[in-house]
Write a protein that binds this DNA or RNA. Structure first.
Length: 919
DNA sequence: GCAAGGTC
């Protein structure tokens, strides 16, 4: 590059702080002539000036910034109004990128500066969005100065060496990265706007959604990020609702010594089969001497967390302080703006090797609470320092969140500012500390062939736990044992428990789900969560756990009933992989856009024709509204034909407040032309088929669905009909069923459709009333419908567990699997029993014996203090020589319960020695 | 009035 006259270059960063930081670094050299600052058109985006040399060429640098995206994507004016078009048109409607009003001042600064420069150097963040913003800046600057020489600086941290290196090794901007973002923007806009308009106009006025005083303004939004987020909440809620508690049993053993108490856990964990657990327990009781089979001592380390990314900050603030992710980001932004912490929106969880970590620790030495810990960290003799280990994420744009300025608390800080700053500092100090060290002892014992294990832990060095007060690592003592040592347990109990459903999703859980599925970015995840609350789709309790509202559940249920997974994260995942393909150049921008929008349009059209499902799911929770007749004018009605009476307006298909359909003239009340349809219509959709005989045309045919129970058996449920006068079937059904022109209850003999419930009390019970939404049978509600089991809402059903021949329990005699079978003998036909699969073993037990006779001792049963007998018995097979009659059981309350055989019910022996077994 | 993504 030649020397000579200095070149004027305009540098642009993504945010003011980066413009300031990079200018500061580049102007440190005395030859820079110092750093000068002047105002631009925007009060936030200053312009920094300094001199710089790139490969012997002198430059006069101006360095300014934007604030994120400079442009927005929007539909052309004629599509902006909600009623301007059928939402389906939004899949083709023209869109344009423009600079919104509040960014015009930045645009003007860029134009003015660009005119004075020969070079444009782009310092946007080095991610896809940054690259897209770079091209927005290029577009604006090029319009002002077509001859600009355009360069891109690539940097991953605001560190002197790296910034200088970037400036000396400028590259060209990457169009493919920017294209990928263009694809995302367009898809998000078209899908979001079309579905939001569709479902809002369809449902808002049709139902009484009583969330606000003015629920006319409620928006039922759909978005490719917000809906899957709602999906996570609803799915967990359904999982909890469909949980069926299942009883299980476990054997616990304790041993008390002067040194302490050891609690031994059964290696089998727990068994769901009582008989099996009880028989094993019985064996243990009869041969209750415990033998130590292994003593293991190990050093265990508990590592400090990785450096702090945004999602971790949000999750931990939620867990430790119950702060919402949205509030956390607000407070973090304040701390960042005031210079106390680094940039809070980062995916990076590892520090660059060039970061001066020790200097950051030094800053904290004077703090009254954690200052002494910082001092210890810097003392080589303390041996507390450890270079932080990263979690493998790097957004190449920002470092992990860390303190940037010391503070012992500022005057203007709220409690939450204090808490969050403390979390950032303690987390940072923890990251550069040694892990906590513990000595763990594990003792395995054998009782009658069953294995149990106990462990204890002594904390040897707390290390990072000294400063990271949010985490703990419990220590527990265990007495000393030696290999081969034998002892008699102090207690040996058979305890029962019940499986519990998972808890509602916490905010931290929700963030994890989103992170895993790639929903949102570090900077937007909290927005999506907040949107669920703002849209009344979900609520958050004081424990930061989320439940869907009836509205949220109804919407997800509606789409689920249609068979779409629009509420699942797959659409976003598909878009993400397509975006990657675009950014790699393996797929073109147009190809991805066309394919995705084509698929989504087909889905939208299908959803529109299946809107009855959304109506049905909404009707489960909400009353129909009387506003709908007026406001249905606002929905985009489907045109059937030009009105043959007034010949001025269209005849459109409408659904009335009572749920019935009609075709009426839009010229009403001036023109009163109307075609009444049969009252038995449950769904009606105008098709694109044109009737070949009715005139004047076109008259579009309508696809009808009739309620089976309301039409004669010789008529089909599905019918493609015409209202132009040519359709005999339609005419006959009007005669037979009547029209939907009267109130449904006044038509005798007509089966109920989805009659709107008339009170809130009724509404709250609506799930248990009327026909099931799924199979339309009465007697159960849709959420427990057996036909839904396979679709995942009911996680498990008892019927599914009791499959003929399914291997379900280990044989208590030989250990081989027992299978559940159904008897086919004359006396026991249909009766279920378990039998052992082994040819050598003939273990057999009636299932109803287990349920009725087996549970003789509910709750905890344990051995009494009486001495166990080891005298030979009359049993056969397995572990011989046991006799049950010497034993008594006590219940959890200490009352004695005599033992009883689970096979034949005889109290004189146990099942494993039952003479009737296998008969 | 709608999305999600930047950012103040």
């Amino acid at each position: 590059m030649a020397g000579g006259r200095p070149i004027r270059a305009l540098n642009v960063a993504e945010k003011p702080s980066v413009a300031k930081a990079v200018s500061g670094i580049l102007s440190k050299n005395p030859s820079s002539g110092g750093l000068r600052v002047r105002d631009g058109r925007s009060r936030y985006n200053k312009i920094f000036e300094f001199n710089y040399t790139i490969q012997n060429q002198q430059f006069q640098m101006s360095f300014t910034s934007v604030t994120g995206h400079l442009m927005e994507l929007e539909f052309e004016e004629r599509y902006r109004k909600w009623h301007s078009c059928d939402p389906v048109q939004l899949y083709q409607a023209a869109v344009k990128k423009y600079v919104p009003e509040d960014k015009l001042d930045i645009k003007r600064t860029l134009e003015e500066e660009a005119r004075k420069c020969q070079w444009l150097i782009l310092w946007l963040d080095c991610d896809r969005e940054g690259e897209n913003i770079a091209f927005e800046v290029v577009e604006v600057c090029k319009q002002a100065n077509r001859n600009l020489n355009i360069w891109r600086a690539r940097f991953s941290a605001l560190i002197d060496r790296e910034i200088h290196y970037s400036m000396q090794h400028l590259v060209r901007p990457n169009q493919l990265f920017a294209d990928a973002v263009d694809v995302r923007q367009e898809i998000d806009l078209r899908i979001g706007a079309s579905f939001t308009r569709f479902q809002t106009m369809l449902l808002r006025d049709a139902f009484n959604i009583n969330f606000t005083t003015d629920d006319k303004n409620i928006i039922l939004s759909y978005g490719p990020c917000q809906f899957p987020t709602l999906g996570f909440v609803v799915e967990r809620f359904w999982e909890i609702q469909s949980h069926e508690p299942e009883e299980f049993w476990t054997i616990n053993c304790t041993h008390n010594l002067e040194e302490g108490i050891a609690t031994f856990n059964w290696m089998r964990g727990h068994l769901f089969d009582y008989t099996c657990a009880a028989i094993i327990y019985e064996m243990c009781v009869q041969e209750s001497t415990a033998t130590v089979t292994r003593v293991r001592q190990q050093e265990k380390l508990k590592y400090p967390p990785h450096p702090l990314s945004t999602i971790e900050l949000e999750k931990r603030a939620s867990r430790y302080f119950r702060m919402s992710s949205e509030h956390t980001m607000k407070v973090a932004e304040d701390l960042y703006q005031a210079g106390f912490i680094s940039y809070p929106r980062t995916e990076t969880d590892c520090f660059s090797e060039r970061t001066d970590l020790r200097m950051m620790v030094q800053e904290q030495q004077g703090h009254p609470v954690w200052g002494s810990y910082a001092q210890r960290l810097l003392d080589p003799e303390a041996g507390l320092w450890r270079n932080p280990s990263g979690g493998g994420h790097d957004d190449k744009a920002h470092p992990p969140i860390h303190p940037t300025k010391f503070s012992a608390g500022e005057n203007g800080w709220s409690q939450d500012h204090h808490k969050l700053y403390e979390l950032v500092v303690r987390h940072f100090l923890a990251c550069v500390s040694q892990p906590a060290v513990g000595a763990e002892t594990t003792v395995d014992i054998d009782i009658a062939g069953e294995l149990f294990s106990a462990s204890g832990r002594v904390i040897m060095a707390k290390n990072y736990l000294d400063v990271y007060r949010f985490e703990s690592w419990g220590g527990s003592m265990i007495p000393t044992y030696n290999f081969g040592q034998q002892f008699t347990p102090t207690t040996l109990t058979l305890d029962s428990g019940v499986t519990r459903p998972p808890p509602l999703l916490s905010e931290a859980d929700l963030l994890s789900c989103m992170d895993k599925a790639g929903i949102g970015t570090d900077a937007t995840m909290h927005d999506h969560i907040k949107k669920l609350l703002d849209r009344f789709y979900a609520t958050k309790d004081s424990n930061t756990r989320f439940s869907p509202t009836e509205l949220g559940e109804a919407l997800v249920m509606g789409y689920d009933d249609m068979g779409y997974e629009l509420w699942k994260p797959y659409l976003r995942a598909m878009m993400e992989s397509d975006m990657k393909a675009v950014s790699m150049g393996t797929k073109s921008k147009t190809e991805v856009l066309e394919t995705c929008l084509q698929q989504m349009k087909a889905c939208f059209v299908d959803a529109k024709s299946n809107k009855g499902k959304l109506f049905e799911s909404m009707a489960v929770f909400f009353e129909r509204s009387n506003r709908s007749s007026i406001n249905e004018q606002n929905t985009v009605a489907e045109v059937v034909r030009r009105c043959s009476l007034c010949q001025e307006s269209d005849m459109v298909l409408r659904r009335k407040p009572d749920g019935n359909f009609m075709v009426g003239c839009t010229g009403f009340p001036h023109c009163k032309n109307v075609v009444w349809l049969p009252g038995s219509v449950s769904e009606a959709v105008v098709t694109t088929n044109i009737c070949s005989s009715c005139a004047p045309g076109p008259v579009y045919q309508i696809q009808f669905k009739f309620r089976r129970l309301e039409i004669p058996p010789n008529y089909g449920v599905d019918h493609l009909g015409c209202i132009g006068g040519c359709d005999d079937i339609l005419r006959q059904l009007v005669e037979i069923c009547g029209t939907g022109s009267r109130n449904i209850s006044s038509v005798p003999g007509r089966g109920p459709g989805h009659t709107p419930s008339s009170s809130s009390a009724q509404r709250s019970n609506s799930r248990g009333q009327g026909a099931c939404l799924y199979c339309r049978q009465t007697g159960h509600s849709s959420d427990v419908c057996p036909s839904r089991v396979s679709r995942g809402r009911n996680v498990r059903s008892p019927e599914a567990d009791a499959q003929e021949g399914e291997s379900s329990i280990p044989c208590s005699s030989c250990g081989a699997p027992c299978v559940l079978r159904t008897a086919n003998t004359a006396s026991n036909r249909g009766r279920k029993f378990y039998s052992c699969r082994s040819q050598e073993c003939n273990f057999f037990v009636w299932e109803d014996n287990i349920n009725e006779g087996g549970r003789v001792a509910r709750g905890n049963i344990s051995r009494t203090a009486s001495n166990p007998s080891r005298s030979g018995g009359r049993g056969r097979g397995g572990r011989s020589g046991r006799q049950a009659s010497d034993f008594a059981f006590v219940s959890a309350t200490g009352e004695p319960i005599s033992g009883r055989c689970f096979v034949c019910g005889d109290p004189s022996h146990f099942a494993n020695v039952c003479p009737n077994r296998g008969r």
